[in-house]
């Protein structure tokens, strides 16, 4: 398959980038740092699930940093090659533009996934020898979900990268999306949550206050990720009262994984290079 060849080449290229190598080290240091902060007193142990459930790891590290880094790693995936001219080498070979976009999403997600895996597993394994009670299943699952969140933001960045003719525009769009999804979304969501505790949404909106908040969480890929991981770590994923919400959040993550690259491809396919 042609996209496979592109993905393999992009993976080979990305894992050799200093950016990604530095990033892997950063993950190792940060995850180790979180575990150190949460270290138990003498004679006690702490479970890896407690680490994963901590605000520090889940909110500060994963949902704040992973989107940022994924966007940085992928914003120039297509447009960078378009500006440098290596795209001419790539497209003179028998690859369709769809193969290029798909290959970029997959190759770069895989490279990012490697950084996440090394970053999460290395410190955990080291500390498992000490006071950390290591629950392999949930830890690997959480790491996979983090890689999925990374892939979603890689997909968003590759979509932007394919859609525009210059690196500068791609940077602008990805930075804008980051601010929208991470700080801004939270800044709107929190006061709104307080507001809906005392009053209800306008009458023309056929939703209750709680539903509006839930929708806001669901639409944002980091929010959807939190819904899925919380349920996963609480062993209630796709079960109980939240089942519908979990399915919705998973579907939303998949939609974010597919829609931006498709939009990018739609523009890229029409472009004169």
């Amino acid at each position: 398959m042609s996209w496979e060849v592109v993905a393999r080449k992009d993976f080979q290229d990305s894992v050799r980038s200093r950016w990604l190598q530095g990033l892997t080290v950063l993950f190792v240091v940060l995850v180790a740092g979180v575990i150190w902060v949460l270290r138990p007193g003498p004679g006690e142990t702490v479970s890896s699930n407690q680490v994963l459930n901590s605000l520090l790891l889940k909110d500060a590290l994963v949902t704040t940093l992973v989107p940022l880094i994924a966007l940085v790693v992928a914003y120039n995936a297509v447009v960078g090659e378009r500006e440098s001219g290596s795209l001419k080498l790539l497209l003179s070979l028998p690859h369709s533009r769809a193969d290029v976009v798909a290959g970029k999403v997959i190759g770069r997600s895989a490279a990012f996934g490697v950084a996440v895996f090394v970053g999460f597993l290395l410190p955990a394994l080291a500390l498992a020898l000490g006071p950390l009670q290591f629950e392999v299943g949930s830890f690997v699952g959480f790491t996979l979900l983090t890689a999925l969140l990374g892939a979603v933001f890689v997909a968003i960045a590759v979509g932007a990268s394919a859609a525009v003719p210059s690196n500068t525009l791609a940077i602008g769009i990805t930075v804008g999306l980051y601010f929208l999804f991470v700080p801004l979304w939270g800044a709107v969501q929190l006061p709104l949550q307080f507001y809906f505790q005392v009053s209800s949404p306008p009458a023309w909106l056929p939703l209750t206050g709680q539903e509006v908040i839930r929708l806001l969480r669901l639409i944002n890929p980091t929010g959807a990720f939190k819904i899925v991981t919380n349920a996963y770590l609480g062993s209630t994923l796709f079960a109980g009262d939240g089942a519908r919400l979990h399915v919705g959040a998973t579907a939303m993550l998949l939609a974010w994984l597919l829609a931006p690259p498709l939009f990018g491809l739609w523009r890229f396919d029409r472009a004169d290079l």
Partner: peptide, 16 residues
């Protein structure tokens, strides 16, 4: 492009 070989103008290589 399956049957064509191209040396493009103004191309770049993959540095890494």
């Amino acid at each position: 492009r399956r049957r064509t070989g191209v040396l493009p103008e103004g191309f770049d290589v993959y540095d890494r």
